Simulated scan of single mutants.
Amino acid sequence: MKLGLLAWLCLAAVGAGAQNLPVPPFASTPDMARLDYDLKPRQIAPGTWVIEGEVADFSRANGCNIINTGFIVTGDGVVVINTGPSRLYGEQQRRAIERITREPVRRVIALNLHPDYFFGHQAWADTPTQALAGSVAGMQAEGRAYADNLYRLCGDWMKGTESTPAREALDPKSLPQTLQVGSHRLELRRLEGHTADDLVLIDHTTGVLFAGGLVFAERVPTTPHAQFARWTVSLDQLAQWHAAGQFRTVVPSHGPVHEGTAGIRQTRDWLQWLTAQMQGSAERGLDLAEVLRQPAPERFARWAAQPAELHRSLTQWYPRYEERALAGTPAGR
């Protein structure tokens, strides 16, 4: 009974005790009257910049800017990661990059199919835009529905926005792929679980991981396209890469940039709790209304988008657990 992101957006109109992370104040001051996102790139490593979204849920007050986008200035051009929730964001992102560097942008990479990863692509019509083939297919299939719902959620911030899927599909069989771009050695790898095709980028030169939607920090994970067991496996893989020294700094698509594996552990903790909660509640015969009334554990209570994001997950996924419990078969996770 997978509803997909369309219904998810409509609902919006490595273990317990994971380390808490400081959440800095939202650096930008969006101006709704002028439709100005007030994007403020922050350098986190040599040549590496992040434009941080608010650690929050979609709202008109924040311009629906809740995603971290980034760019790497390599000495031989710029690589952009994610382009935000609207045409306006993409245009303002482009101007923000131009204030930092005069190097040309060589490529734009979207890490998955969700709209705030690629709705700014309109501003990059003269630049190669890339994503995994499965993500491109998802963008093409669901883009119009995403736009309809984001217009309802975000209002005037979406003016002139049209779904613009990535134009170049990365073949999963070609990954992992290492790119030497200027002075930076970048590696693209495919994982899965948050969606069916999750792209991550590791900058081996600076030790920065752009983790996409696989990692959330201090925010309840979104799960409209989730494959829970595979997501957990991917988180374990990220933890192994960290232990092997392949990265130090994590840029989640949602939540504060941080050092180490705290975001990985937080995300894993949430997924394990959520699936166990649904499984146990279904086995006890609770209905959805009863499950929705149950609060999340205290360790999650202060996370952004709580309880709204929990309620979206339960509304989408709990009926599947109920069906499996009634049939006497284990719930798929």
Results as ranks from 00 to 15, higher is better:
residue 176 P to F: 08
residue 166 A to N: 09
residue 234 S to D: 09
residue 287 D to Y: 12
residue 177 Q to R: 13
residue 44 I to H: 14
residue 11 L to Q: 14
residue 193 G to T: 06
residue 126 D to Q: 10
residue 66 I to V: 15
residue 192 E to H: 11
residue 319 P to Y: 02
residue 207 G to Q: 09
residue 112 N to Y: 13
residue 36 D to Q: 04
residue 49 W to R: 10
residue 24 P to N: 08
residue 69 T to I: 15
residue 92 Q to T: 02
residue 83 T to Q: 04
residue 41 P to S: 09
residue 264 I to F: 01
residue 166 A to D: 10
residue 65 N to T: 00
residue 83 T to R: 04
residue 270 W to L: 13
residue 240 Q to V: 11
residue 63 G to C: 00
residue 324 R to Q: 15
residue 143 G to L: 03
residue 6 L to N: 15
residue 302 R to W: 03
residue 290 E to M: 09
residue 44 I to L: 03
residue 182 G to E: 12
residue 59 S to L: 07
residue 127 T to D: 03
residue 166 A to Q: 08
residue 320 R to F: 04
residue 237 Q to I: 14
residue 122 Q to C: 03
residue 50 V to M: 07
residue 122 Q to H: 02
residue 259 E to T: 15
residue 145 A to Y: 03
residue 47 G to D: 06
residue 116 D to F: 11
residue 43 Q to N: 00
residue 190 R to M: 03
residue 234 S to W: 14
residue 287 D to R: 13
residue 49 W to G: 03
residue 175 L to Q: 05
residue 220 V to C: 01
residue 121 H to Y: 11
residue 60 R to E: 14
residue 212 G to C: 13
residue 163 S to W: 01
residue 278 M to H: 02
residue 67 I to A: 06
residue 2 K to I: 12
residue 216 F to H: 12
residue 163 S to I: 08
residue 112 N to Q: 10
residue 19 Q to K: 03
residue 161 T to H: 10
residue 168 E to H: 15
residue 242 H to C: 05
residue 117 Y to I: 11
residue 310 L to V: 10
residue 330 P to V: 00
residue 71 F to S: 01
residue 63 G to P: 10
residue 319 P to K: 01
residue 40 K to D: 00
residue 254 H to Q: 10
residue 311 H to P: 10
residue 144 R to M: 07
residue 114 H to G: 03
residue 285 G to K: 10
residue 173 K to F: 07
residue 107 R to N: 06
residue 273 W to M: 06
residue 273 W to S: 11
residue 54 E to D: 04
residue 102 R to T: 14
residue 15 G to W: 08
residue 128 P to W: 07
residue 106 R to S: 13
residue 276 A to G: 14
residue 324 R to E: 12
residue 174 S to R: 15
residue 3 L to G: 02
residue 47 G to M: 03
residue 313 S to E: 00
residue 36 D to A: 13
residue 288 L to H: 09
residue 2 K to N: 14
residue 272 Q to K: 07
residue 70 G to F: 04
residue 122 Q to K: 12
residue 27 A to I: 08
residue 92 Q to N: 10
residue 320 R to T: 13
residue 286 L to H: 02
residue 170 L to I: 15
residue 226 A to Y: 07
residue 56 A to I: 00
residue 141 A to P: 09
residue 296 A to W: 11
residue 323 E to V: 10
residue 135 S to M: 12
residue 138 G to M: 02
residue 67 I to R: 01
residue 30 P to I: 05
residue 154 C to Q: 05
residue 333 R to W: 00
residue 225 H to L: 14
residue 77 G to W: 04
residue 179 L to N: 13
residue 273 W to D: 12
residue 194 H to A: 15
residue 97 I to R: 06
residue 1 M to N: 11
residue 276 A to Q: 15
residue 313 S to A: 15
